[in-house]
Amino acid sequence: MSAQSRILIVEDERNLALGIAENLRAEAHAVECVDDGERAVERILQAVPDLVLLDVMLPGIDGFEVCRRVRSAGCNVPVLFLTAKGGVDDRVQGLEAGGDDYLAKPFQLRELLARVTAILRRQRWYGEVPGAERVLRFGGNEFDFRSFAGRSFDGREQVLTQREAMILKALAERAGEVISREDVLEKVWGYDVYPSTRTIDNFILRLRKRFERDPEQPRHFHTVRGVGYRFTSEPA
């Protein structure tokens, strides 16, 4: 890891927290640990870290609730859930609560490090917006990648979720080119992809609803059947 990232570990299992912290520090990250849910929410909102490793079973409020509170406070910090349960239910609950990724205990150290790296890489990729391209303008719409907020052609304010913004960025970065669904998954979800390619279709539909004059006849977000998508900023 070249640049140092700030990572918050929320884990009440002391040995595990220490072990993860040591390993992440060895990867040159700055690490802080807290062991209960309320304090976690407080710390995250005080100084938003680059990544939160969040245990699900915590004293006080559980990890899902921590994530929900953080999200409802408008914070888009990436969250990697760690949990002893690991059932399908938990996975779904974690994603619904706004988690970015999910790792079941006991996990492999390499797996953990790889996921952390992937999430941070995604974060950095999204954050790397040259000043001039900070605001994307197309067909009367505009969107600010930093604030996640924009305005559509009809004057309505549009606040995108982090995922939507990332997909928009992935498409806009290579405007005019065809981008495969797999490419988008890799860029936006990263390591060990779990959503189906259908999920992306749903995101594209949402983007069309926000920014297309006629979502049925898209002029910016095109589907290239069997391949992927193409974004054009100005209709040909």
């Binding site: 595990l16 993860i20 390993n23 002893a84 349960k85 006991p106 150290l109």
Partner: peptide
Amino acid sequence: SASHEFKSPLASARLSIETLALR
């Protein structure tokens, strides 16, 4: 809670041993 109680020390022991091996 029992599965949590089993898996947490298991995860932690595994992590310690992997750290020994990896680093």
